[in-house]
Each structure stands twice: as structure tokens, then as C-alpha cells.
């Protein structure tokens, strides 16, 4: 396979790959931002006093977690037009990715908050810190420390999940591989190049995850 590997074709298609690499980055970046926002809101609802808010968040999170992203993507892609809502494909894709990862972020943040020892809250109360001060200075910084690794893990999943957008004809890295394959009948060149670009993103996020872990020195004793 490799003796026939045609680097010239890859070079020829490099502008397309770069353009699609950028598309994958901004589609994932936008969805990531949306997902964290949705996750914080859903988590706050899930931990709230109101039974109704808790149930709404619960149904949302369980439904997303129990069905595949691809089915969710098709649900919006074929479903929104049948309700008369016409959106560009990229926006449908970003909405599906946002809502999907949002449910996972809600669970990650909740686990991070609930992992904090109750003694921490008591110590804050005993020093006379208010609820908001306890959240701001004691709970959230520790929750962030607890969650930074799973958060980045979910970001990696999100980037990989964005490859499914190629199935609704959005131009991104996987689509670039499909284009090269169908135009030149060279699947090896097409898909292995695509894979290499994903690996670049993966290793960058993984290195960042390791680095951030080291910065949080206090976690080492736990």
C-alpha cells in the first residue's frame, strides 16, 4: 500500500485540507463554547430546588446520553425542515453538536461540584464567608480543578464527533478525505491525511490536558 502512496496528490489537495482543517476547528470551537454554556445552565437546573427545572434538565440529559449523535444530527437535519425551519447545514450541525456535548458537560460539572468534600463548605461557613463567596473562592476553583481533565476529554470527543457533519455535506476534514477519494480514487491518501490532521488536534489537546494537570499542584496528594 505504502509503496504506491502518492504524496503529490496530497500536496495538490493541501489547500483544500487547510481550508477544511480550519472549518473543523471553528465548527468544533463554536460548538464547544455553546456546549459549555448549555452544560452550565443544565447543571444549575439539575441542582436547583425547583422540581420542574430538575425534571426538564434530567429528561434532556438522559435523552441525549441514550441516543447516538448521528441519530440526533439526522433528527435536526430532516426534522427542522419538516417543521418549516430552514437553516444552513453548518448551523444545523453546530446545534446538534452543542446540544449533544452540552448534556455531557452538565454531567461533568455536576460530578466536579459534588466531588468536593463537604468539610470545605463547612470551613467556609465557619469563617463567615457568604454563599456567593464560598462558590467563588472555594467551590468553583476546586470544581474547575476536578473537571479540567474530563472537560478537555469531552472537547477531544467533540472534535472527533464533528466528522459526522460530513454526512450532511458540510465541508470539513472528513469531507475533504471523501472528496479526494472520489475525485482521484485514492482512499489511502484521502483518509490517512484526514486522520493525520485529527491526530494533530488530539495530541495538542492531550498535551494541554497534561500541562494543566501539572499546574494544579494541590491535586497530587488526592
Amino acid at each position: 500500500m505504502l509503496e504506491g502512496f502518492n504524496f503529490r496528490i496530497i500536496w495538490e489537495y493541501m489547500p483544500l485540507y487547510m481550508q477544511c482543517f480550519a472549518a473543523t476547528l471553528w465548527l468544533s470551537g463554536l460548538s464547544l463554547f455553546g456546549a459549555v454554556v448549555v452544560g452550565i445552565i443544565a447543571c444549575a437546573m439539575r441542582l436547583s430546588q425547583s422540581r420542574i427545572l430538575r425534571s426538564i434538565a434530567g429528561v434532556y440529559i438522559e435523552t441525549i446520553r441514550s441516543t447516538p449523535l448521528l441519530a440526533q444530527l439526522y433528527f435536526f437535519y430532516f426534522g427542522l425542515p419538516s417543521m418549516g425551519i430552514m437553516l444552513p447545514e453548518w448551523l444545523t450541525g453546530v446545534i446538534a453538536l452543542t446540544l449533544n456535548s452540552g448534556a455531557y458537560y452538565a454531567e461533568i460539572i455536576r460530578a466536579g461540584i459534588q466531588a468536593i468534600d463537604f468539610g470545605q463548605i463547612e470551613a467556609g461557613i465557619a469563617s463567615g464567608l457568604s454563599y456567593i463567596q464560598r462558590m467563588r473562592f472555594i467551590i468553583l476553583p476546586q470544581a474547575l480543578g476536578n473537571t479540567i481533565r474530563p472537560m478537555l476529554g469531552q472537547a477531544i470527543i467533540l472534535v472527533k464527533d464533528s466528522s459526522l457533519l460530513s454526512l450532511i455535506s458540510i465541508m470539513e476534514l472528513t469531507r475533504a478525505g471523501q472528496v479526494l477519494t472520489s475525485e482521484r480514487f485514492t482512499p489511502a491518501e484521502g483518509f490517512l491525511t484526514t486522520a493525520a490532521f485529527y491526530l494533530i488536534i488530539y495530541y495538542m489537546l492531550k498535551a494541554f490536558s497534561g500541562w494543566s494537570e501539572k499546574r494544579l499542584i494541590f491535586r497530587e496528594a488526592h
Binding site: 500500500m1 477531544i156 472527533k160 464527533d161 464533528s162 466528522s163 459526522l164 460530513s166 454526512l167 472528513t174 478525505g177 471523501q178 477519494t181 482512499p187 489511502a188 483518509f191 490517512l192 484526514t194 486522520a195 485529527y198 491526530l199 488530539y202 495530541y203 492531550k206
Partner: peptide, 23 residues
């Protein structure tokens, strides 16, 4: 493990389905 974790499953399927016949 890194190779599999670092790439989308869709791309892995395409590699197996389209490239293996080539060898």
C-alpha cells in the same frame, strides 16, 4: 490506543472499508 482515540470513528471505518481492499 492513541491512534484510535485520536481519530474519529467515521474515518476509521472509511480506512478499513476503502483502504483494506487496496492491499
Amino acid at each position: 490506543v492513541d491512534l484510535i482515540r485520536g481519530t474519529p470513528f467515521l474515518v476509521q471505518i472509511f480506512v478499513i472499508f476503502f483502504i483494506l481492499p487496496g492491499i
